[in-house]
Amino acid sequence: MMQKTKKKKSKFWTLLIVIVVFILAFKSNIFNGQSLFGIIDGDEPGSIPVSTSNSADLIPSDNLHSPNAILVRLDNQKVLLEKNSKQKIFPASLTKIMTAIVAIEKLADLQKTIVLPNSTFRELYKADASMAGFTANERVRAIDLIYGVMLPSGAECCIGLAEHIAGSEKKFVEIMNQKAAVLGMNNTHFTNTTGLQDEKHYTTVKDLSILLSYALKNNTFKKVFTASRYSTPPTNVHSGGITFYSTMFKNLANPVIDGGRILGGKTGYTNEAGLCLASLAQKDGREYILVTAGAKGNHESAQYDIEDAYTVYDKLGK
Rank of each mutant, 00 (worst) to 15 (best):
L216V: 04
G154F: 07
A253P: 07
Y202E: 09
L196S: 12
P152W: 11
K223R: 10
A162W: 05
S228T: 06
N236S: 12
S239Q: 15
L216M: 10
S246Q: 03
Y214A: 07
P234V: 02
L252S: 10
T270C: 09
N254Y: 04
N177S: 10
T194D: 00
H189A: 14
A166N: 08
S168A: 05
Y230R: 04
S239E: 15
E174P: 00
N236L: 11
A162N: 06
T226F: 00
I262G: 07
H164C: 09
V140S: 04
T194I: 09
K179D: 02
G167T: 13
I175E: 15
N219L: 12
G195W: 08
V182W: 00
T188H: 05
P152V: 11
R139E: 15
I143T: 03
V173I: 09
L161Q: 05
L252F: 11
E163H: 11
N254T: 03
L211A: 10
T247F: 00
F225L: 00
G264R: 03
Q178V: 09
K217M: 11
K200W: 01
P233L: 14
I175M: 06
I262A: 03
I165Y: 01
K200T: 07
C157I: 03
E199S: 15
F172K: 01
Y230T: 04
L151T: 07
T243Y: 13
T191S: 14
G160V: 07
K217H: 13
A180I: 04
L211V: 02
A181E: 04
R229D: 15
P255F: 02
